[in-house]
Design a binder for these strands. Structure first.
Lengths: 262, 262
DNA sequence: GAGTGGTCTAGACCACTTG
DNA sequence: AAGTGGTCTAGACCACTCA
C-alpha cells in the first residue's frame, strides 16, 4: 500500500461539530475542485484513507458515498474510486426540428452526432400498438390505442437517451410510420407527406433522479440525474399528431432554446 | 415499538444473488410505487425493519440511503423516514418574457405565483459591481466589469430558485437597473426604456446534482437535482445586454417551450 | 423517558481486477 | 497473490422529537 502523498489531504479538526465523515468528504471535494485530483484520476484507496485519517473503514466509505451521490466520483469494483470523467455533451438546439433539416433526409440525431465527430447508433427499436397511459392519451386527444415507437440512442457506444413516440392509430396504421425504419427524414417527414403539415412543437422539461430501470437502460453512474422531456407535435389544424417521451442522461446533454421577446 | 403490519413488506430471498440491502430497498420502493405508503407517510422505523428482516441495523440504513438518493424518501432526525412529499410545481412557459407581460408592470415570478394561488417572496437581494467569470464575460462580449444582481425566490416559504443577472457596466451604471428595486416590469422594462429594445432570449439548460452550497441555499432534500439555466438577452442590434444564471430546485419546476416547425 | 435517526468502531468474508 | 471495493454483523454512544 503506497503512502499518501503529503499535503493533498489535510487533517481532521477534532474540535469541529462537523461529522468526521463529512470533514473527510469536504477535503476530498476541495482537492477535486482545486484540480489536485483531475478528471479520471484515482483517489487514495479506502485503506489509505483509513490510515491517513485514523478512522474506521465504514467512516471512509460513508465519506466516499457522499461524493458519489454528488456525482463527483465513481467507484469501480476491484480497481478504485475515480474522479468522474465528464462525457462529451450533446447540444440540442431549438431549431433541431426545422423543416430544412428534415428535408436533408437524415435523422436529427445522426446528423448532429456526425457534426460533432461522434459515432452514433440507434438500438432496441420496438414498434407496436398499445393502450396509452392516461397522460399520453390526454395529450393526443384521448385515442384508445396508439402506435408506439421505442428506441435507444448511443453516442460512441454509450447510451445517452431513451425515447418513445406515440401516434394515434388512425394516423399511423398501415403507413411507413408503422415500419421499424420509417425512411429518410423520420416520422415527421412521413407525417407531412401524409398531409399533416406540422405547425409547432410543445416541449415540457423536468429533471429528477433516475428509476432503477433507467439506471440500467442508460447505464447511469450514481449521482447523474435524468432530463425528462415530453414533446407534442401539432399540425396546422391544431391537432396533436405525436407525443415523444424522452429520458436523457443529464450529464450528456445541454438543451438550447430561443425565445422571441415579442 | 409497534409490530409491522403484515403483508406490506415481504420476506427476503436467501437464494437470490441480489444483496440483502438492495432486496429490502426494492420491497420498500415497490410498496411506495403501489401506494401502500402514500406521500408523506411514515415508513417503519429502522428498529422495526431490523426486526422484520432479521438483519443488522447498518444493512437497513444502507437500504434507506438508496431510497434517499433516489429521491423517494426523506429522513427527519428523531421523527422517522417519510415518503417524500411532492411540492407544488411551478410551470415556466416559453412566453414568460413576452413584452405584453412586462407592460403589466409586475415581475413574471410574482404574477405566475399569484395565478397559482401561491405566496411568493424574493429575498437576499444583492446588487453590486464585479469582475465576471470567463463564461459570463464571453457571453456578454467580454466586458471587464459587470453589474451583478443576485436574488432568491421563495414559494410558500420554500426557496425554489437562486438567480444572478449580469449586465455590462456601461449599460447599467447609474440607471434604475443598479437599484435594488428596478421598478415595474423589472430590468427588462428598464432596458427597453434605455433604448435597448429586446429581440430574443437564448436559454441553455442543464441538470445536475447540487453543490453543498446549493443544498443550503435552496434547502434541498437529498435526491433532488437542480436545473441550471443560463439565459442571454439580445437587443435588436444583436448585442447581448444581459446574462441570467439561474439554479432551480428540480422538483419545483417544469419548463415549457414552444418550437416552430418552420 | 422512550423512540427515533446520526455517527462511529472493529472486525469478517466476499467478488473483482491486475500482475 | 495482492490490492481493491462490496456486503454484513453486533455492538456503542449521541442528538433530536414528542408526549
Amino acid at each position: 500500500m503506497a503512502a499518501l502523498s503529503p499535503g493533498v489531504l489535510g487533517a481532521l479538526d477534532p474540535t469541529s461539530d462537523r461529522a468526521v465523515f463529512r470533514q473527510i468528504a469536504d477535503q476530498i471535494r476541495e482537492a477535486i475542485d482545486k484540480g489536485r485530483f483531475t478528471e479520471g484520476a484515482k483517489l487514495p484507496s479506502e485503506a489509505e484513507l483509513v490510515e491517513h485519517y485514523g478512522v474506521s473503514r465504514m467512516t471512509v466509505r460513508n465519506s466516499l458515498s457522499i461524493l458519489q451521490t454528488e456525482g463527483l466520483v465513481v467507484s469501480e469494483h476491484g480497481k478504485g474510486v475515480f474522479v468522474r470523467p465528464r462525457p462529451p455533451v450533446r447540444r440540442l438546439a431549438s431549431d433541431r426540428f426545422a423543416r430544412r433539416h428534415r428535408e436533408q433526409g437524415k435523422s436529427a440525431f445522426l446528423v448532429e452526432a456526425e457534426a460533432a465527430g461522434s459515432k452514433s447508433e440507434v438500438d432496441s427499436l420496438e414498434v407496436g400498438e398499445e393502450r396509452p397511459s392516461q397522460d399520453i392519451s390526454a395529450r393526443l386527444g384521448s385515442p384508445r390505442r396508439v402506435l408506439a415507437r421505442r428506441r435507444r440512442y448511443l453516442l460512441d457506444g454509450r447510451p445517452v437517451e431513451f425515447a418513445t413516440s406515440y401516434l394515434p392509430l388512425d394516423l399511423a396504421r398501415n403507413t411507413p410510420i408503422a415500419q421499424p425504419n420509417p425512411g429518410p427524414g423520420g416520422i415527421y417527414a412521413r407525417l407531412e407527406e401524409l398531409g399533416h403539415r406540422l405547425d409547432h412543437f410543445d416541449e415540457e422539461i423536468k429533471a429528477r433522479m433516475p428509476t432503477p430501470q433507467e439506471v440500467r437502460t442508460l447505464r447511469l453512474s450514481s449521482g447523474v440525474p435524468v432530463i425528462h422531456l415530453v414533446r407534442t407535435a401539432y399540425d396546422t389544424e391544431g391537432r396533436a399528431v405525436e407525443v415523444c417521451d424522452t429520458v436523457m442522461a443529464a450529464d450528456a446533454y445541454v438543451l438550447a432554446y430561443r425565445l422571441p421577446a415579442t
